[in-house]
């Protein structure tokens, strides 16, 4: 018998620190599969951010640079400007990308910086213990919105990928989810598309991936998947927000 499905060689064979059922691991594997399939192990540089995914520099067996909180797109810019031929991607959560790192992300898109942001959105700060994120849903209970997110006081969920898609330098923006085999395959295709566009030097690309945070949502892994599809996806509909150079932006795809 022949091994047909094995762990991608771009992933180190060590256990991950993520909580049971957390879908970060699925996204890591998809990125690694794409790098394997495109034979980019020596040509890829990942930029780790700060948050739950901050130790992924140990998980990917590729060159990695570990950025300060929110600064991954600036770090990626520095790398890409020196080495325009390499695949440079950031891996950022919603706290990192949409709060402290908003400026770096927007201006990377404005410049059409030829990098890819992999944006893992679970609507909460995971690593620090379940605080409210800019992506937290209205009335969502978190450790810093214990009575539910009051939109009058704390604002509405940020539309980050929509903002990035609006910039002319952004050529591809898609929101996907990792909630079942079909959506996981779709997410992989989106990552591959973004990486291919980057290698063709098309401009800035982003793939937003809706994932879970069972621990801080207070749900078991299966309930979390259900909640993600019923609540998070309702706020953040999946679909292509921008595709190829200059195509129209299709925000709020139903």
């Amino acid at each position: 018998m022949k091994k047909v499905i094995v762990k991608p060689k771009v992933l180190h064979n060590i256990p991950w620190h993520y909580c049971p059922g957390c879908t970060h691991g699925i996204v890591h594997r998809l990125i690694a599969e794409v790098i394997d399939e495109m034979d980019l192990q020596k040509d890829a540089v990942g930029v780790a951010s700060v948050g739950c995914s901050c130790f992924n520099y140990d998980y990917f067996d590729i060159d990695m640079s570990a950025a300060a909180h929110g600064r991954a797109p600036a770090v990626a810019t520095g790398i890409k400007r020196v080495q325009p031929g390499r695949l440079v991607f950031t891996y950022q959560g919603d706290g990192d990308l949409c709060a402290i790192g908003t400026a770096e992300a927007i201006h990377a898109a404005v410049r059409g910086e030829n990098i890819t942001i992999i944006f893992y959105n679970n609507g909460i700060y995971g690593m620090t213990g379940g605080q409210m994120a800019p992506t937290s849903l209205p009335d969502m209970k978190t450790t810093t919105s214990p009575y539910g997110r009051n939109v009058q006081e704390t604002g509405f969920p940020i539309k980050m990928t929509e903002m990035l898609a609006l910039q002319e330098g952004c050529v591809y923006a898609e929101r996907t989810k990792v909630s079942n085999p079909a959506s996981i395959n779709k997410t992989k295709k989106a990552i591959r598309k973004a990486f291919e566009l980057q290698l063709s030097r098309a401009g800035f690309t982003i793939v937003e991936i809706l994932g879970t945070c069972p621990t801080n949502w207070g749900l078991d892994p299966l309930q979390a998947i259900k909640w993600m599809e019923e609540k998070l996806e309702k706020q953040y509909p999946t679909g292509i927000l921008k595709n190829s150079k200059g195509d129209s932006v299709i925000c709020d795809k139903k």
């Binding site: 018998m1 499905i5 957390c22 691991g25 699925i26 079942n180 085999p181």
Partner: peptide, 19 residues
């Protein structure tokens, strides 16, 4: 049936599938 669903949804890369 070797559909690979288990591999696809596993967040910890626990599965290897042979045919």
């Amino acid at each position: 049936t070797g559909c690979t669903s288990c591999y696809l949804v596993c967040p910890d890369c626990c599965f290897e599938i042979y045919r």
